[in-house]
């Protein structure tokens, strides 16, 4: 039997935290390792008790979820973090992806969807919704507009043609499978490309200059 995926959550709403914990615990192949009430506690306690996945609420009291993600990434943590949010605010979600999140989930998503997404991320997938894909494309478009000196000094990278193609197809509405077919590549390759895109995004997010320049 595959071992259970250990999930920790950060959620400041007590009742919701309980519900989510129960949901995960009640799901096959999942186990809720810890449920932190805020980011500070998570930053402090999580390293001692590392999960496989972290589910992070965006709107937290005290430090925001996005900042928490950034802090984790600054600490060189490779932990996959999934943002958990009520509203689909693509700006905030994009920010969190920039900060280093690996995906997002809507709180109102059905149980099955929620668990499916968690499993996908655990397995290395890099889900990206259409709107996020568009935002990524726009972001890299802006990066390409920067003066070369800035780009060079920050060691930034732009998207490759394949990556751009994948993102464009995503934005249009194609599924990963369809993209693989269209591009005559395997689903794995697509996933790898997506992971690469995410990495680039994360790299860029760590560069203060770029952030400042793009006003994020």
């Amino acid at each position: 039997m595959p071992k259970s995926i250990k999930v920790s959550i950060v959620e400041d709403e007590a009742e919701l935290r309980l519900e989510v914990e129960r949901l995960i615990n009640g799901a096959e192949g999942f186990r809720c390792l810890a449920a932190y009430p805020n980011a500070e506690t998570a930053l402090e306690l999580l390293p001692k008790n590392p999960p496989d996945l972290l589910l992070m609420d965006i709107n937290l009291t005290g430090m925001s979820g996005i900042d928490c993600v950034r802090k984790f990434r600054d600490a060189q943590s490779k932990l996959p973090i999934v943002m958990f949010t009520v509203y689909e605010d693509s700006d905030a979600l994009f920010k969190s992806l920039m900060a280093g999140a690996s995906g997002y989930l809507l709180k109102r998503a059905p149980r099955a969807k929620l668990l499916e997404a968690l499993r996908e991320i655990y397995e290395g997938g890099a889900p990206m919704s259409r709107s996020i894909a568009r935002k990524v494309v726009e972001f890299f478009h802006q990066v390409s507009q920067l003066p070369p000196s800035v780009v060079q000094s920050a060691e930034l990278q732009s998207l490759t043609a394949r990556e751009q193609e994948i993102l464009a197809s995503l934005a249009k509405g194609k599924s990963y499978k369809e993209i693989a077919v269209d591009c005559k590549i395997s689903g794995d390759t697509v996933r790898k490309h997506m992971a690469r895109i995410y990495e680039k995004l994360h790299v860029h997010s760590r560069t203060a200059a770029i952030l400042k320049y793009l006003g994020r």
Partner: peptide, 19 residues
């Protein structure tokens, strides 16, 4: 885009977007 994606998905339709 988000709205149409969600509506289509919950209804089981494919949603293509050119924005």
């Amino acid at each position: 885009c988000s709205m149409s994606e969600e509506l289509c998905e919950s209804a089981g339709l494919r949603c293509w977007q050119e924005v």
